[in-house]
Design a protein around this nucleic acid. Structure first.
Lengths: 218, 218
DNA sequence: GTTTAAGGAATGAATGTTCATTCCTATCGG
DNA sequence: CCGATAGGAATGAACATTCATTCCTTAAAC
């Protein structure tokens, strides 16, 4: 999926009435209408995850998105609104990548494998999204709506691990502990991949997943 | 240990020559000379770990440390110097907490338990230090000296896990993977403790440690 | 098919604010 | 009294945000 398509949550038909001629002669010919918002969000993701919220200026975002600084304020009321929109977009995208169409008939062993695989693919395809979400998850500029979104995501996993505990498949430990340990391990391994400290191979991912299974199995 | 004592790396005798009278009549009577530097570093730790480097102003640090803004520049050349001093101090302190007087005759199982326990105690005693180090470890304002310190710490662990692998005690996986997974898991559990999502009890810590052992044991 | 006027979007210089840093003054210990 | 030190107002740079202007697209008129 092209990165330009990512943020088209709502149908973009209204912005798509330009013909080929107009498309080619615009100052920023490579960007069509709705693409501007996406370009801004993409640029913000890169900069916020590299430099943090306060370390990123609106001018930097504008420059990387190849738009004027004022244009950002046509799409977002202010910098806070932008970071919250970005956070919510990626939180939803990540939740979807995990939970959408999750087969219900998988064995617990296969379930963990599937989850690990989804997580792995998500952070390979969106290398900046994970560090952005991690980096900003407790930030003071997040609105309540952003925070609640994060909690809802967590709850789905707690239910899952609670069930596996009742069925005596995992160790008799609180699901919160399983969640904290597994997600921590995953994030740790993923960071090592991204830092180049570890080679991202299918074999390595299988090893890591196997180790996590050993950690939680009864 | 009082937090005021933490930063007295070098003997603080020179700063301790005031008598009781002068102590009581100073503008900020509760602070003695060298304590100012420590108060600044303590305040900076709190603020940097809560709000990040760019989200913290020098005025905030001065206010929380109960000193004038200009005073900070008597002890540090600039804000970058301050954050680097803080990073290096805590990196060294953490490395010390892990590696100092580590018994050489422990069984691998006991070694992991000891390391987990040390890590656990360190982050219980210094709840802000871990998130500060995590939060800033790849920041652009860190000097090379700060970065090298972080690497040296990691290398000690890699050697340890390499040995355990050769001795066929842990799984036949790269030590970098073991390191990434174990530290990730620890940080995940520790964050959950700090966020109040998990009760910090001796039992819970023992469970978490047990799970990590299962993850890495052959 | 070409010209042109209107509407809306993008721009980036200008604005007021906030920041890191400096520096003069008041205060302190001796 | 004197030298030194802490304080915090002053300074200039950098920031988020605004807004008058320009530019682009469309559609109407011919």
């Amino acid at each position: 999926m092209d990165t330009r398509e990512k943020f088209l949550d709502k149908g973009g038909a209204a912005g798509r009435i330009m013909n080929e001629y107009s498309f080619r002669t615009r100052a920023h010919a490579h960007l069509r209408d709705m693409d501007r918002k996406e370009a801004i969000l993409d640029a913000a993701l890169e900069l916020f995850s590299e430099r943090g919220f306060h370390g990123t200026t609106v001018a930097m975002i504008a420059e990387r998105a190849d738009v004027g600084a004022g244009t950002i304020y046509r799409y977002f009321t202010d910098k806070d609104d932008l970071v919250n929109a970005l956070f919510q977009h990626w939180k939803k995208t990540m939740a979807g990548a995990f939970l959408a169409d999750l087969p219900t008939d998988l064995s617990p062993r296969r379930l963990l494998r599937e989850l690990w695989h989804r997580f792995s693919r998500f952070s390979r395809d969106n290398p900046l999204a994970l560090s952005f979400l991690e980096f900003h998850c407790h930030a003071s500029y997040l609105t309540d709506a952003s925070r609640e979104l994060a909690d809802g995501f967590r709850d789905r996993f707690l239910e899952m691990f609670e069930r596996l505990r009742r069925e005596q498949i995992t160790k008799d430990v609180p699901p919160e502990l399983v969640f904290a340990l597994i997600t921590g391990a995953f994030v740790g391994v993923e960071k090592a991949f991204q830092a180049g400290e570890l080679d991202r191979t299918a074999e390595m991912e299988a090893l890591a997943e196997e180790m996590c299974w050993e950690a939680i199995r009864r």
